[in-house]
Design a protein around this nucleic acid. Structure first.
Lengths: 219, 219
DNA sequence: GTCTATATACAGATAGAC
DNA sequence: GTCTATCTGTATATAGAC
């Protein structure tokens, strides 16, 4: 009989946990889609397939649900990792990072988080600070480390790796990001973004003393 | 008597117009401070010192008031203009633009508009499109023109001035802007921003083939 | 045009049955 | 824990007196 009780409580727990997850998922989706204020607890409960009271018993209030939902999403943001084979070629490596970075920024989820952070950072700084630590700060550190290694290998001549990392990442955001942020009529095409990135990588390497390999034909 | 009537209606008109301006001013302030959803017509009416119904008879509804208020503010965004004396010195000129640009972005009003545009661009694209045309697009054009002239004077060697302008402006945004956007605990100091800008201008000039003048002592 | 008072809707949050 | 039904506040918007 103790086994039966055990089973029952386990079952109950898992069912409750299941609902909790469904609520969290629904909340993330709705908050990311509509922002904090325009999202209603009613709507979230309905999408999760539970009653509103169930939402409240799990998460207390709207603020706490918001933090929990965004926190859950923070861990999703990682850039695709660099193929080890190209790490000693700064040109290929930076091109890879540029493309991975802008893809992340322009992805539906990346844009949603960016929007949320900017919209809510004044009233709810915790959210954007969590995301900043879980996203942008990691990317900055990754690029900085890369630049340190290039500096040591004398492939690049960088006086301040942190500044150089910020310059590189900021530059890559470019017109593509602001046009998405502002939802302008004209948006950049993938081809335009690729051309911009290629130009930017070469510009960056020139500015930091990279010795380009002779390009085959010319001299 | 017709003169009296004239006077009276003029007086009435101007009093009505005065209230309209007060409403607009109050609306701009509150919308910029709290965003669209968190701003209430009650609050705006109170700050303007009129009744809510007066707000409605002037502007119809909240959306139209919002557009009118933001549109009124758009014209405020101009960068301080370049002193003519330094235009032939790219280093000084870019330094000037970098500082003016980041000051504009980080100003209370600039940040507020940026935040509003990003928060509302999905539900109300008109707002951000108006602002984009009145603000960022003008700055991009101004810098592009400058680069064209440097190109013609052979001071710089730029293959694509639009791309170069975006690279320059995006780079200047840098860490300072994102930390403000996200309201992170650590914010950059003016000194850090100045150092970043100086570094960035030099980096930019190197990358686009500027011949630096010998710096006095060395060589 | 301008005001006070009100209609209507919906939000976040809670009470109480099971 | 979970539900239905409800409380309470506040939002946009409107009616009607002056």
């Amino acid at each position: 009989m103790s086994q039966l009780v055990e089973k029952t409580t386990t079952k109950m727990r898992s069912k409750s946990e299941e609902k909790r997850q469904k609520i969290l998922l629904a909340a993330t989706e709705i908050f990311c889609d509509k922002g904090f204020l325009a999202s209603s607890m009613n709507h979230i409960a309905k999408l999760a397939g539970v009653s509103k009271q169930t939402v409240y018993s799990h998460f207390g209030n709207k603020d706490e649900l918001f933090v929990a939902a965004i926190r859950a999403r923070c861990s999703d943001f990682k850039m695709s990792s660099l193929p080890a084979s190209i790490i000693d070629d700064p040109q290929l490596t930076l091109q890879f990072f540029a493309n991975a970075f802008i893809s992340l920024l322009l992805s539906k989820e990346g844009l949603a988080m960016h929007r949320i952070c900017i919209s809510e950072s004044r009233t709810n700084p915790l959210i954007s600070q969590l995301y900043f630590a879980a996203g942008p700060e990691l990317v900055i550190a990754e690029i900085s480390d890369l630049f340190v290694s290039y500096q040591q290998k004398k492939l690049l001549k960088i006086d301040n790796v942190h500044i150089a990392a910020m310059q590189f990442l900021s530059m890559i955001k470019g017109e593509a990001l602001i046009r998405r942020e502002y939802n302008t009529e004209k948006q950049l095409t993938t081809e335009q973004i690729n051309a911009y990135n290629e130009n930017s990588v070469n510009f960056f390497l020139r500015g930091y003393g990279y010795k380009f390999k002779p390009s085959g034909l010319k001299s």
